[in-house]
Design a protein around this nucleic acid. Structure first.
Lengths: 158, 158
DNA sequence: ATCAATGCAAACCTTTTGCACGCGT
DNA sequence: ACGCGTGCAAAAGGTTTGCATTGAT
């Protein structure tokens, strides 16, 4: 058996592995009885095409160029579904709303991000503080999850 | 017992240093021409009395026991002022709103928190990942800030 | 007597929901 | 044809703002 082609490399933009990831995502939806509508696919396409956190508002506006009658409710319903399926992840920053990005796609290993405060672009952080710090929780504290993000301006934005 | 006590049984107030911190905070406000109203002081008292993230709604409800006509706008206006003065800090979690806690008070050194997802209680994390990890930003990325929080359930909540 | 602080109401913004119709399978 | 997906409208939260009044200094 030959294995998959491109194993790694944090290549920017849509390469074959990302395309494959999309297929996998959509396949997963199909198996659960959900339908592959144009709007649903477009959300995945937009998020898959950019390593960025994007707001529901921006998604709506960009999608309205193709689907003029699209409204917020459909965007939010799809975002929620994609999130429940583990296809996208949500995060909140200080600006009063949520933003979304595709999950790492092909390799779903645990990771953290550098996040551009101007455009929302993300890049992977090497390592995780939970592994590398000698984290010792306070007596009785049961750790469930953590959040680690580094904010700043990316090369293109400053 | 020289200090005035809260009627509640579960206060985790540390000691005189926090009282001193409060005086310092209020002094700072006074110097800038702001007034020391009972409502303003009560917000500081509540937040200072507990190492917790508290929502505007919870603050409102607790303060309404003393100020029945108090409404959200006043709470928010005061929260914003206290935040601009660096007296409190705001953070958002997945629940659609902001929560607030007192800044570390006496010692304002950089820090991170364990945060109880049930009651919002916080405890200090030893060390900071930015110091202890070999953080090397991607080419051209200018780091401005970071966020590191460990979520779970505290001793009292599980 | 000032000028900030407050209460009230209404506006605003993001997100959610009920319902009837349209569309992917 | 079935049942999910969508558009529309309206509602639900959380937060902000304009304005007249109250209150701290």
């Amino acid at each position: 058996m030959s294995e998959k082609d491109h194993p790694q490399a944090h290549d920017h933009r849509h390469d074959h592995s990302q395309q494959a990831a999309k297929e996998k995502f959509l396949e997963r939806l199909k198996e659960q009885g959900f339908k592959l509508t144009g709007k649903r696919q477009m959300i995945v396409d937009i998020l898959l095409g950019e390593d960025r956190y994007i707001s529901a508002k921006e998604l709506l506006e960009r999608m309205q160029e193709v689907f003029p009658r699209l409204s917020f409710d459909t965007v939010y319903r799809n975002l929620r579904l994609l999130q429940e399926e583990g296809i996208i992840e949500e995060s909140t920053f200080g600006d009063g709303g949520s933003k979304y990005r595709i999950t790492c796609g092909t390799h779903d290993h645990h990771h953290h991000h550098y996040i551009c405060t101007v455009c929302g672009k993300t890049e992977l952080v090497e390592g995780c503080p939970m592994d590398l710090l000698g984290i010792t929780a306070p007596r009785g504290f049961q750790i469930e999850s953590h959040r680690f993000e580094i904010f700043g301006q990316c090369e293109d934005c400053h």
